[in-house]
């Protein structure tokens, strides 16, 4: 399967899923029209590079995706409690700094997901990306942090799960 076809299969599945969510019905007429519309969208998508081709079609991939989702939701809740604590403490305990983080993910989709997760997790905000390096604004940066420390603390946890289902 070429990258383009693979990407189109994913676009088709995503469009059909969105259609099903929006119509909220499993009547055969809805399914038929939804399939036609999703097929049209997938075929009309000009995406020679295959943005979604980075997804791995492997038996264990859904399992890794679920693990990633779980890790992400826990991190989101922790991020909010952490932010609430900082905002409500009168002394405003923050030590902001900008650090660099290295990622082993090669595809645009993988890096997008990683940057999104970093933005929504405790005290970090993805600012810029150049090649395999992400620039992160960190609210509570321990003094003397180098790139290895930052990579381990911020990105490694997500990257392990992400690598299981995206290149």
């Amino acid at each position: 399967m070429t990258d383009r076809t693979k990407s189109q299969v994913v676009v088709f599945a995503a469009a059909l899923l969105l259609w099903l969510l929006l119509t909220a019905s499993l009547a055969w007429q809805e399914l038929l029209v939804g399939t036609v519309v999703a097929l049209t969208v997938a075929l009309a998508t000009r995406d020679p590079g295959g943005f979604f081709a980075a997804l791995r079609f492997e038996p264990l991939a859904p399992f890794h995706a679920l693990r990633f989702l779980g890790t992400f939701l826990v991190a989101l809740v922790r991020a909010n409690l952490d932010m609430a604590r900082r905002v409500l403490t009168p002394a405003l305990p923050i030590r902001p700094s900008v650090v660099k983080v290295r990622t082993g993910l090669e595809s645009e989709l993988g890096r997008l997901l990683l940057a999104n997760s970093i933005t929504l997790t405790p005290g970090t905000l993805a600012v810029d990306m150049e090649g395999g390096e992400l620039l992160i604004h960190w609210v509570d940066c321990p003094p003397g942090t180098d790139m290895e420390d930052a990579t381990r603390d911020i990105a490694a946890g997500f990257e392990r799960h992400l690598a299981g289902f995206v290149r």
Binding site: L76, N80, M83, L92, I94, P96, T119, T124
Partner: peptide, 18 residues
């Protein structure tokens, strides 16, 4: 409360998403 725009974005994004 936050002192600069980056910290404000952080507080805004996370809290409003959740």
């Amino acid at each position: 409360r936050m002192p600069d725009v980056y910290n404000r974005i952080q507080a805004g994004t996370k809290a409003v998403t959740m």
